[in-house]
Simulated assay, not measured.
Amino acid sequence: MSGRERLLDAALRLMAEQGIDAVPLQVIVETAEQRNASAVHYHFGSRFGLIDAVARRHQARVDELRERMLASALARPEVTLTDLSACMVLPIAAMMDTREHRDGVRVVSQVIIKYGFHTILSADGEGRESLAEMWRAFEAELHDVPVAVRRQRIARVVASQMGAWADRATQIDAGRTPMLSHQQFVADSIAVAAGALSAPAVDMRTLRWAVKLT
């Protein structure tokens, strides 16, 4: 295994456990058994470069499945928000099978929280095409929703889904039994995503009683 791969492995585990900004780079270098203290900067340029490489390596594992699912869904005579939500949820759910994959889910969730899904979506690189295709498909189904609202809604749903799966990964690796079985959680995640995306607009005038209390 190359030094670069060792660094990625060490960073994945430590960032998942301690946080993408909390773990010292020197600890990652030592865990990866690298002698050069500047190994991270040599291979990745910066902490951000390392975080991006870790996230991309994880995402590469779900890109092929997401691409195949989207192609199948979009070839149907009619595609629904439930279909598209399944294309979003199922590739994440497939990453619950090993500790390494679950660590990847936790790291990607942190990246989305810190940098925002829009930043990830607009970044260049392999795998971004399927993310963009999924985004366009969601937007097409939400064409009646104002542009700014639907884009914010999609980003929020993606972030919340990643957060929910990251929390489940943490429960599993801590030895706790989640309330729902894997299949139940998958089904409910798809339902929650589709429901949130299709939620009706709220007229704040009907909530004046609540606004007055804040």
Rank of each mutant, 00 (worst) to 15 (best):
R56L: 15
R56H: 14
H58F: 15
Q59F: 13
Q59C: 08
A60M: 14
R61I: 11
V62Q: 11
D63W: 06
D63G: 08
L65D: 03
L65A: 11
E67A: 15
R68A: 15
M69W: 06
M69R: 10
M69G: 00
M69I: 04
L70H: 02
S72N: 08
L74I: 11
L74A: 02
A75I: 00
A75R: 01
A75P: 05
R76N: 10
R76E: 12
P77N: 04
E78W: 04
V79W: 08
T80P: 03
L81C: 09
L81N: 09
L81Y: 03
T82G: 08
T82Y: 07
D83C: 03
L84A: 01
S85A: 15
S85Y: 00
A86R: 11
C87A: 05
M88A: 15
M88E: 09
V89C: 01
V89E: 03
L90H: 07
L90S: 09
L90R: 13
I92C: 06
I92T: 13
A94I: 08
M95N: 09
M95D: 08
M96I: 01
M96V: 01
T98M: 05
T98C: 07
R99E: 12
R99C: 06
R99L: 11
H101Q: 15
H101F: 06
R102E: 03
D103Q: 12
G104L: 01
R106A: 01
V107K: 03
V107M: 04
V107W: 14
V108Q: 10
V108Y: 14
V108N: 10
Q110C: 02
Q110P: 00
Q110E: 08
Q110M: 05
Q110A: 05
V111R: 05
I112P: 00
Y115V: 00
F117Y: 14
F117G: 04
T119P: 04
T119C: 07
I120T: 11
L121P: 00
S122D: 14
D124Q: 11
D124F: 10
D124K: 13
G125I: 01
R128N: 07
S130N: 10
L131A: 08
L131C: 08
A132H: 06
A132S: 14
E133I: 13
E133H: 12
M134I: 09
R136C: 10
F138V: 05
A140Y: 00
A140I: 00
E141S: 14
E141Q: 15
E141R: 11
L142V: 06
H143L: 14
V145N: 06
P146K: 02
P146S: 07
P146C: 07
V147N: 02
A148F: 13
R150F: 07
R150K: 10
R151T: 10
R151M: 09
R151L: 06
Q152A: 14
R153E: 04
I154F: 03
R156F: 06
R156G: 15
R156Q: 11
